[in-house]
Design a binder for these strands. Structure first.
Lengths: 220, 220, 220, 220
DNA sequence: CATGAATGAGTCTTCATTCAT
DNA sequence: TATGAATGAAGACTCATTCAT
């Protein structure tokens, strides 16, 4: 958690620090992204950074949680509630993709961060890193199971894992298939990325179809 | 590609270098894993390392390909050929899990590597990194589609992506669910990891069931 | 150009850094003179050096320009203006020799630097290295030609080259002829070098005589 | 002096080693030019190099002497003997320039070497490095003085120094004036350098005129 | 005599962090 | 609270030389 000095900053400055840091951590791994570079790009004094954040790790953890929250909040607002599980799941994926398309910096950062298990040594990271989307999906699955939207022979833990995995990686699929060049665009600050919403919708349908029939309750 | 000096080494020494390097890159990201440390642990002279590999990047790429090949070869031998797609997919996952359980070092390394997009800068990595398993799965899907094992409304690219994703991440699921503590076990060289094969088989069934019904051709 | 950090240093410390660096670069070539050694002799932290100068090359270029400027300024002050070209040329050489005798460290450094064409690779060095003395001499020659101090059949470019060459190397001649042992004296910090001014004046006369009659307009 | 193993080599191989080494030492200073690189470019085994030469220094000294001798021998053959000093001096310069134009590799090497005082530490280099051209010029001056070709008020040591200086640097003048790009041509192995002999002759005349009238006895 | 692997000291440079102002 | 200089450990990598085969 950043020190209170950080939050006392004018929000414009806060955002600038966040954005610059995100960009560095988005294009380099935790170790390679250096505070020295961030500080140079930001223009703020190096000492100041240490008045805002305890150390590099704290900054990083803050960014991860910041990104997670941004995405979760966006999805929460954008996804239309649906009674039926798969309809909602579709909304989730769609909203998530929309977020990724309009927030490529954060998206790229999350892609980079996702599986850097060794980024932060000597800490039980799960305690430091929020995963609201993951928990949300977990709840969703359980509710769906109770409502009999999901076949009863499906293991909910496994279902959660699979759905979560797909949710997190769907944009990576789009990125590769449509050559969005997320990496370069982020480094050059060229965004938003151009991909018509219809294309996204179509791909979302493809995915949901694939998942839905697999999880859905049916009798044959 | 390592220099021939490396391959001239007694295979025991080769393996020791590979194993030590794998362990470092398995527990730290590309940048944080330092040649100095590897060299110190190996006991060989720093200069010698550069007689074997052009530079750090070459060592890393070699390890990635080495690990991929090891896993692919293992699966190739272990998985019983099956005419039916889902039966074969099941075999694939099972064999892959078996590999992960018996080669936790490589497994952990691959988990770490998988999504470190920015590890190696300034190179078109896809040309340097083999992905035989990925290509294999791609072929599998296409064949399955031709044999009508997969519903015709399923997008093969999407199916490949999803199946590949699950194949690569399945062991991560096991690791978390059964607290295999892959990270610590690898660092302490405590393996193999204990997980009865029946448990693995059961989980494999869960996954395949989930996927199968989603992809399988059926009429309702 | 050094960073402003360097110029913010107390001038005593600046001078110490300059002198130590000059000494190293004076007795070893660009590559052999190492920052590690300089830093060790200076007593400052290695990291600090990089707060003052971008890199080794920048330090070196700074020193070259520093030395050139020192000598030029000294000569500018010391040489008595003369209307007649050869009288002025004599003053130039005399003042230059005086500088060399009283600033053996810089003198030795310049001797060492002069023809190390490949010291700094990949750069158009002429843009980075000032040559005020050279330009000054070039002007001098042209003016002299206009004033008919120099025979009209003399090629001014050639004359500039020759005069420049002699100006730069005259002290080397003294050094060898009188065994000044510039090299050792500099390394041991034993200076100023002892050579009576009358001797210098005599040698200057020898040189100027040689040059003068060659360039002067005369009718035979 | 190289070991006898070197001279036992087929002369083609000898020459290849010499040429490759010359090129490296021509484009980099003594320290920066590494045996490792030379050996790699030559294709011979690193150990072999140490069977031919005691160490790096011995190779370097051998090259310097080799180059000096080559140039001296060439000039000896090419320059037409002349009774009169200035006519001979003219021949010397002309032959030297011809050598430089037709042997740019050696020429560049010599330019680079000339004033690298600190190249070889801890040795009295003058004992190791031959300077036949310098001694030749010294003799020439003394003879000329005896023959009254040179004014009697001219200091012979000074005259030797000046003439030597000009002889050694004349090609550098041509190189700069006519943009011969000696550096790049040598590194790319693009030679001989194109400069018509008439141009050279003209420039030689310019220089000799300048020197001659300055040294010649005349009565005004 | 040729080979080429082994060696470890030494190179330049960057880093996260501290601390005095 | 902001600043930015100071620090020295550590990184990747190259080098000249040795030596066993």
């Amino acid at each position: 958690m950043p020190k209170k000095t950080f939050f006392n900053l004018p929000s414009q400055k806060q955002n600038f620090i966040i954005e610059t840091s995100l960009r560095k951590f988005a294009s380099l791994n935790y170790t390679a992204a250096s505070l020295s570079q961030i500080v140079k790009e930001t223009g703020i004094a190096k000492g100041s950074m240490y008045q805002y954040f305890e150390d590099k790790k704290e900054l990083y953890i803050y960014l991860v949680n910041y990104a997670n929250d941004m995405k979760f909040d966006f999805i929460s607002e954008e996804a239309e509630p649906q009674d039926e599980f798969f309809a909602f799941y579709r909304e989730l994926i769609r909203a998530g993709s929309l977020f990724d398309l309009t927030h490529p910096l954060i998206s790229r950062f999350q892609l980079n961060v996702m599986q850097q298990p060794a980024a932060i040594e000597g800490e039980n990271n799960s305690e430091l890193l929020s995963n609201r989307l993951g928990e949300f999906i977990e709840n969703l699955i359980h509710t769906a199971k109770e409502h009999n939207h999901i076949a009863d022979y499906i293991d909910p833990g496994m279902a959660t894992f699979v759905v979560n995995l797909q949710t997190m990686n769907f944009f990576k699929y789009l990125n590769e298939k449509y050559n969005l060049a997320l990496e370069k665009n982020v480094e050059n600050r060229e965004y938003p990325l151009p991909l018509p919403m219809e294309t996204v919708e179509m791909e979302v349908d493809n995915l949901v179809k694939l998942v839905e029939v697999g999880l859905r309750w049916h009798n044959n």
